Simulated scan of single mutants.
Amino acid sequence: MKRIIFTNHANIRCKQQGINPESLKYELRDVPKFNGEVRWITAHAIVKLESKGKNIAIVKTVISKRKYKDSRKLNTEA
Rank of each mutant, 00 (worst) to 15 (best):
R13A: 03
N55S: 14
D30L: 07
K25C: 05
T42Q: 01
L28R: 04
R29L: 07
G53E: 02
Y68M: 01
N35L: 10
K52M: 05
L28I: 05
T76K: 15
D30W: 02
Y68T: 02
V38C: 06
G36N: 10
K33M: 08
S23P: 01
F34S: 01
P21E: 10
S23C: 09
C14G: 03
K48G: 05
Q17I: 00
L74H: 03
I46C: 05
N11R: 12
N35H: 14
I19K: 05
K2S: 10
I5M: 07
V31L: 12
H44L: 13
Y68H: 08
E50M: 15
G53C: 12
G36M: 04
K48Y: 05
P32E: 09
D70A: 12
L28M: 07
S64E: 06
K48D: 05
T61G: 07
R39L: 08
A43W: 00
S51I: 13
K33L: 08
R13P: 04
N75K: 15
N35Y: 12
R3Y: 10
L74R: 13
R66N: 08
K54Q: 04
E50S: 13
S23I: 13
P32M: 02
N75C: 10
M1E: 00
G36H: 09
E22R: 14
R3K: 10
Y26C: 03
L49V: 13
K48A: 14
I46N: 02
K52R: 06
H9N: 11
R72M: 09
A78Q: 04
E27G: 06
T61A: 08
A10K: 00
K33F: 14
K67L: 10
K33Y: 14
A57Y: 11
P21K: 12
P32W: 11
I4K: 07
C14R: 00
A45D: 00
R13V: 01
A78T: 02
I58H: 05
T61Q: 13
A57N: 14
K67E: 09
T61W: 02
D70V: 09
R3H: 03
P21M: 11
I41V: 14
K52N: 00
G36F: 04
R13L: 06
K33I: 09
L28A: 04
R66D: 02
D30K: 05
K69T: 12
I56R: 06
L74I: 11
V59F: 01
K2T: 09
K73L: 14
A10E: 02
K52Y: 04
T76C: 04
E22L: 12
I4W: 00
S71R: 09
R72W: 03
S51E: 09
K25M: 09
V62N: 07
A57H: 11
N35A: 12
K69S: 12
A78K: 15
A10M: 05
A78Y: 07
D70F: 11
S71M: 01
E77K: 15
N11W: 07
K60R: 08
K69W: 00
A45R: 02
K48V: 15
S51Q: 08
N8P: 02
K69L: 13
I58P: 01
M1P: 08
A57I: 15
L49M: 14
I46Y: 07
G18C: 11
Q16P: 00
I46D: 01
A10C: 04
N8C: 00
A43R: 10
I58T: 07
K65Q: 08
H44E: 13
R39N: 15
I63V: 12
R3I: 01
P32R: 11
T42P: 00
S23D: 14
S64K: 12
G18N: 14
Q16W: 03
I46V: 15
Y26G: 03
